[in-house]
Design a protein around this nucleic acid. Structure first.
Ligand code: FES
Ligand code: FES
Lengths: 132, 132
DNA sequence: TGTTAATCCGATCAAATTGGTCGTATAAAT
DNA sequence: ATTTATACGACCAATTTGATCGGATTAACA
């Protein structure tokens, strides 16, 4: 409960890795995968998600790889999580209203309170400050 | 990712239900289960966990059930979550150090930052203020 | 005192989510 | 052309969570 997924962890590792290099240096999936002992395919997927989300640039072909594209200080953690894992909410009833409890539920507004607090906490946290 | 479990939801529902009654009124598992359409056995387990954790009192026998024991304003959400779901951490490496990434991981301290922020947020939130 | 209705508890099964793999297509450097 | 790497979808495995079952224990009440 309330755990981050591996994909998020791998994404952060990769970003931090790239941040410690020259701004335009390219890091291949393989390089990162080996250095941190991460399954290559899964890391590849994660990097692709970040590329699609405009966080990194993909460079194809041999000598290819990824480099950071966005200003990491401008990306808050909610955006980051959602690019990688999709919509974020403590309970399904926030993005998917077929919650069977919905009719009788007496804690929708309480849960909303917790949810809002959590979101605003992550909104005030940028990827840049986490990985730097 | 970052979701609450059903058990936590059921626990909150039950507490809120009891809070709307006379202080010493007893609510049976069945009563709550039917009113909110919650699987009886699972709700029972959850109530048992709360009883063991000193949050509610169990009254056995026919006409038995549960009533609130603790001052809900004195229980913070971390304590609450941990009574019901056990140790809480964004990554396993916090309570269980056999994380295979541990040797090479470059984001332990970043993750720790997020984790600490989240914990302190939940520590400053009491069950009482959520369910009231 | 026997019956009944409730909690208690562990074991176990099912469903959902997450983690990881595979095969193939595509792009680019040499 | 060949090689090396990303791109991408389909797929399988492992873990976690959700739910169920069977039986033991407790206490109210006829
Ligand atoms: S139905 Fe979503 S919190 Fe109860
Ligand atoms: S090993 Fe725990 S955050 Fe990387």
């Amino acid at each position: 409960m309330l755990k981050l997924t591996r994909k998020v962890e791998y994404a952060l590792i990769a970003l931090r890795h790239m941040q410690n290099k020259e701004p335009d240096a390219i890091s291949s999936t393989k390089e990162i995968s080996e250095m941190y002992d991460i399954p290559l395919e899964l890391l590849a997927k994660t990097l692709q998600l970040m590329a699609r989300g405009g966080i990194v640039n993909a460079v194809q072909g041999p000598t290819g790889g990824y480099k950071i594209k966005a200003k990491l200080e401008n990306i808050n953690m909610i955006e980051f999580f959602e690019k990688i894992e999709g919509p974020l909410g403590l309970m399904d009833c926030y993005f998917d209203s077929d919650c069977t409890l919905i009719s009788a539920c007496n804690i929708r507004s309480p849960i909303k309170k917790i949810n809002d607090n959590m979101r605003s906490m992550f909104e005030n946290m940028t990827v840049g400050e986490i990985t730097q």
